[in-house]
Design a protein around this nucleic acid. Structure first.
Lengths: 182, 182
DNA sequence: GTAACTATACCGTCTGGACGGTATAGTTTC
DNA sequence: GAAACTATACCGTCCAGACGGTATAGTTAC
């Protein structure tokens, strides 16, 4: 059996990290290859072009989002509370791939935008089952707001400090969700 | 008397439009000049480099945001309701410059991120005066969520249709705000 | 069991095009 | 006459992608 393609995952991780930290513009093939500890030729062996790399990242996002939605449905504290908590930036694989993909959507990457819309719709459906369609929107927009801020902050600075700063906000949001639930 | 510098505003408008519609990557100097109906030399006559163009856009944002905050304070329906309503994409000058600037923040433009943080802080202060610091956060995140979605949609497709689709959501959010106010 | 072969997993270099910016000479408008 | 342009040519750099080469692991043939 041939060697395991260890570089493939390393490349995707590096691409993701660069998108988060320095944005789409600076996530060049050279930069990705360098960060992954791989030659540019090696990178292009696994992903024939940049678009293929993006595709793989979107597949990763769909896979992780599907898991998240399952967890959300099964959450003992309720889908809404679970959703708000998980919208906080905690550097989980889903957080990372989500913010990374946001960078692509920002530069008008249509396919990425479509995938986003699909996932958001699923979230909304699950939330609506719990709190009704109207309040589901309020909850979803709060979560989107959390992501928006995570995105604006990017990977810059002390992640720990920012997480704890924002987790105070999550308390406020959970309280708001409780009020909306009645 | 020399002519009025009509091209200056045209360039800034074109830059803004391209950021919204096709993202930062595609908002090149050539593209901006072409869209503005101006020669590249003419563009660079007014803005010696791209950074100067960005600076002017951020100044425009600060100016419009300051007006918005004044309007918010004076709003008869209350700051929170005003804020939610104005977070909806309605193609106003502030909406446009805000989403355009988001594109720059996304590619890790530090100065843009700082300006955003400043404006958000002002919004939060005004909201807190009305609904208290905790619920102010909930309201602000809802507004951020609305912007997040406007940003993801970009300038693509039928703006009218999307606005009306989302204005239904605004109803839900205003209802949520009313509940939180008690 | 080993030689010949094949497929996979890379590496390093090169090229063509785009992009930001410079320079310069001329034209219109007030 | 001077500000506000147009038009065009050019430069250095960066980037996506192409290409040729290499190393190594498994496979077949005898």
């Amino acid at each position: 059996m041939p060697r395991k393609p260890v570089a493939r995952d390393a490349v995707l991780d590096a691409f993701e990290a660069l998108l988060i930290e320095v944005g789409e513009r600076a996530a060049t093939l050279d930069a990705v290859a360098k960060r992954a500890g791989v030659s540019k030729g090696g990178l292009l062996y696994h992903f024939p072009n940049k678009e293929a790399m993006i595709s793989s990242l979107l597949e990763r996002m769909d896979r992780l989002a599907a898991l998240d939605i399952e967890a959300m449905k099964a959450a003992p504290e309720g889908a809404a509370a679970f959703f708000i908590k998980s919208s906080l930036w905690e550097d989980t694989p889903l957080d990372r791939v989500f913010v990374a993909a946001t960078r692509l959507a920002e530069v008008a990457h249509e396919e990425t935008r479509r995938r986003f819309a699909g996932i958001q719709e699923q979230w909304l459906d699950v939330l609506a089952e719990e709190v009704g369609p109207e309040m589901a929107k309020a909850v979803r927009y709060m979560g989107d707001g959390l992501y928006f801020n995570a995105m604006l902050e990017g990977g810059v600075g002390d992640t720990e400090a920012k997480t704890s700063a924002r987790s105070a906000d999550v308390g406020a949001l959970l309280a708001a969700v409780e009020r909306l639930r009645d």
